[in-house]
């Protein structure tokens, strides 16, 4: 059975069907792309899968567990993590602390232990630092660990968001336009990093992207969305040559 199973998912805001009849099934360990013109409903799909919006139709399963109707927090606990199109870091916290917030549920000491500095506090904080260091090193961010997140350059902020999402130890990672605003060199480097993350953490990744080179370069399968409807689904080479898809992007 596949890791993520989405059946007929949909949401409408008043009369507007933002997403309608969305189906997808993603295998464990795969890199899946979600593409489509602006306003096609891609980010809305992410918002549905993370409980930011509640779907008005359909269901979705992660690892066989029905997560439809759960809150954002619960979904995170069940194993879906994401990044945001408009970066949402904890701007007034350090780079290291951003990742440590992601680790919140995985190294747990009690409130009393934190306030009274019991031995478990020191032990667990050390473990937190160690785990955060490993994640930051993957993204070449450890040198800036004490910087405020808002002081990082744009490209590094995007990377920090991925590191923070990984810190929650998800089963499925959703990346919302990870290469937005990056130059070709940075994008190429990011492609490597995403592949590395998949292999290293045996991660399943669903990503939204406009950069077709990135999508066709690393995704094994893609779905094209247009006006909230699914337009095509399959291997990148087939889908990107599909006349319907070309029309959606370039017009008749």
């Amino acid at each position: 059975m596949s890791l993520l199973e989405v059946k007929n998912l949909g949401i409408h805001f008043g009369g507007l069907r933002a997403v309608d009849g969305f189906n997808v099934s993603i295998e464990q360990g795969s890199l899946y792309g979600l593409i489509g013109p602006n306003g096609a409903g891609k980010t809305t799909v992410f918002n549905l899968l993370t409980g930011v919006y509640q779907p008005t139709a359909g269901t979705f399963f992660l690892d066989g567990e029905n997560l439809t109707g759960h809150s954002t927090m619960e979904i995170s606990h069940r194993g879906i993590a994401r990044t945001f199109q408009n970066i949402r870091l904890f701007t007034k916290m350090s780079v290291l602390d951003n990742v440590k917030v992601g680790l919140h549920r995985h190294v747990k000491y009690s409130l009393a232990s934190g306030i009274f500095r019991l031995p478990s506090y020191f032990r667990d904080e050390q473990e937190l630092n160690e785990r955060a260091r490993k994640l930051l090193e993957v993204f070449d961010l450890y040198g800036e660990k004490d910087f405020l997140a808002s002081n990082l350059p744009y490209g590094k902020q995007r990377k920090l968001e991925i590191a923070r999402a990984l810190a929650t130890s998800p089963k499925l990672l959703l990346l919302d336009e990870p290469a937005a605003g990056m130059n070709p060199n940075e994008t190429a480097e990011l492609m490597e990093t995403i592949r590395f993350v998949r292999d290293e953490f045996n991660m399943t990744i669903l990503l939204i992207e406009h950069d077709m080179k990135l999508v066709s370069g690393i995704c094994e399968e893609i779905t094209v969305l247009n006006f909230g409807q699914m337009l095509a689904q399959g291997k990148p080479s087939d889908v990107l040559n599909d006349p319907k898809v070309v029309v959606a992007y370039l017009g008749e």
């Binding site: 949402r88 602390d97 306030i115």
Partner: peptide, 21 residues
């Protein structure tokens, strides 16, 4: 502590904090 970091993360970005669980 981790509890304080959780509190600060809500201040900085509630939606991101929720999606971090």
């Amino acid at each position: 502590s981790r509890h304080g970091r959780a509190i600060c993360s809500i201040r900085d970005n509630k939606i991101a904090a929720e999606s971090m669980g």
